[in-house]
Simulated assay, not measured.
Amino acid sequence: MLLQVRDLNVTLPDQGQRLHAVRGIDLDVAAGETLCLVGESGCGKSMTALALMQLLPRGAKLAASELRLGDLDLASLSEKKLSGIRGRRISMIFQEPMTALNPVFTIGDQLRAVYRRHTGASAGAAQARAIEMLESVGLTNAALRMRQYPHQLSGGLRQRVLIAMALMCEPEMIICDEPTTALDVTTQAQILHILKEAQVSRNMGMIFITHDLGVVARIADQVAVMYAGRIVERGPRQSVLRTPIHPYTKGLIASVPKPQGDKPGTARLASIPGNVPAFHQADARCPFLSRCALRMEACFTEPPPIRQLPSGQQVSCHLPLPAQEAQSQ
């Protein structure tokens, strides 16, 4: 297994208290595999990604029983050693292509700096590598782009630059934090194609963070559904999307707009009432309790059991399993 994470927890300072942003997360990603993390804004997806990169905000505390990338125990490495790993063996495409690049340096300056920092290459070799990577992500006239500043590029072009930067040193693992959210549908499709091609050619592991289930259906091998800092359901893409079990997963899928045929405007768009709560106290009960229309008496008093199903799905919920799943357990 390329990436192994066990019992990952992140707490943040918040008005004199500790906010439990990530609670007890387990993740496994193999080489060449794509794991999609899905959920509403505020569920802890980006914080999980930052924890894996160990780029957490000031005052944040990380704890994990295991945090391993290949042969490396990431939790035991010093900051100096971690800085040599980030961008080299594990890379991240950050949210918001409009702001993720440094506005006072040219595209070429930023790409060359990454390559030289991790490989010790000459300026000429770094220049050639940067142009090669820009061309590989679909930028025409790459030599000209190298001399431009981020504000001179569109959002789609900036996203391509960020992908090129993340791939400069051919990492084993790449984390993509909603890299297509601000892009139009055509550009989104192009970006997804570039990422998938890069993954296949390099046999990279990939964690893809998104709230777009259409993207999940297109690229995921495994899906993990996060809510309030926890994973409430996980499993193979087809199993989770076709036969969701947790009420939150069902709510997310029901919220996706569907074509209405000859009678547009006749169907109501489903929604999940309420908001993601902020957890300042560690609570073993189901985090979806306050918003779940199917809650039971046990939900108020006991932690939800974690059940492994023959389909490969794992769900954390008190509700009875579907008949076919219950019979096969």
Rank of each mutant, 00 (worst) to 15 (best):
Q4I: 04
T11N: 03
L12W: 02
L12K: 03
Q17C: 01
A21I: 00
A21S: 13
V22K: 03
R23C: 01
R23P: 01
G24M: 03
G24T: 06
A31P: 02
G32P: 06
L35A: 10
C36M: 08
C36L: 10
V38D: 01
E40Y: 03
S41R: 03
G44D: 00
S46K: 04
T48I: 06
T48S: 11
A49V: 10
A51C: 10
M53E: 08
Q54N: 14
L55I: 01
P57H: 11
S65T: 11
G70P: 13
D73A: 15
S76I: 10
S76C: 12
L77Y: 09
S78M: 04
K80P: 08
K81P: 05
K81C: 02
G84H: 09
I85L: 14
R88C: 09
F94T: 08
E96H: 09
N102F: 08
V104G: 10
F105E: 02
D109S: 07
L111M: 14
R112T: 11
R112C: 14
Y115A: 12
A121N: 02
A123Y: 09
G124L: 12
A125T: 08
A125M: 04
Q127D: 15
M133D: 14
L134H: 02
E135N: 06
E135S: 10
V137C: 07
V137G: 06
A143D: 12
R145Q: 15
M146A: 07
P150N: 11
Q152K: 06
S154H: 10
Q159K: 13
Q159C: 11
R160Q: 04
V161G: 10
L162P: 05
A164S: 04
C169H: 08
E172M: 13
M173E: 03
I175K: 06
T180M: 08
D184S: 08
T186E: 14
A189M: 11
A189H: 14
L192Q: 05
L195G: 08
G205W: 05
G205D: 08
V215L: 06
V215S: 04
R218K: 15
I219V: 15
I219Y: 10
A224R: 00
V225E: 09
V232Y: 04
V232L: 13
R234N: 04
R237N: 12
Q238V: 12
Q238C: 07
V240K: 05
V240L: 12
R242S: 15
T243F: 13
T243C: 07
H246N: 00
H246F: 13
Y248T: 02
Y248V: 06
S255D: 12
P259C: 15
P259E: 13
D262P: 09
T266S: 10
T266E: 14
L269Y: 03
S271F: 05
S271N: 06
I272W: 09
I272C: 12
V276D: 00
P277D: 04
A278P: 00
H280K: 07
H280W: 09
Q281K: 01
D283F: 06
P287D: 06
P287K: 02
L289V: 03
L289Y: 08
E297P: 04
A298M: 04
P305I: 09
I306Q: 15
P310R: 15
P320S: 13
P322D: 02
A323W: 09
S328Q: 15
Q329K: 14
